[in-house]
Amino acid sequence: MLLRELAEKNRCKFVDSVESWEEAIRKSCEPLVAEGILDESYAEEIIDTVKRMGPYIVIVPGVAIPHCMENAGGAHGTAISFMKLETPVSFDDEDPDKSASIFFTLSSVNTQEHLKNMKQLFKMLTNEDLLAELMQVKCPEDLIRLDEKYM
């Protein structure tokens, strides 16, 4: 469901490598910025918060969920976008668990819709087989294929 939607709505991005985790966060927001769901300032707020609080958005090794508070400034819709980095980026050089190659960027202005999104995301992130395959995706068609296989 969610993976298919990400592919069909063009809310996904496949990138070889980035210079820094900051660049990764800006890029991960781009599909939603292009749709007008996020302002560019949203990425900067995430970056500021990670600098203050640490890389808590890397929720399991390899996977980041960049997000701000609900109804944060710069968010105009409830949505998720996906980004895959071919080369993982490090958020903390001293902790290899805090590297990420998969990004699910979250935007929320509607609690109920957001909860629905998060339930789907939770189901995906707690499925180790799906997660292992997700680490290998290269194009939107791969997302659709995984959606059909797992969801």
Binding site: T49, M53, Y56, I57, I59, I65, H67, C68, M69, E70, A72, L106, S108, H114, L115, M118, K119, L121, F122, L125, T126
Partner: peptide, 15 residues
């Protein structure tokens, strides 16, 4: 509880 109360904390709640 987590930083924003919107992403990680919701995941934690489900766990």
């Amino acid at each position: 509880a987590c930083v924003n109360g919107a992403g990680t904390s919701l995941m934690m709640k489900m766990t």
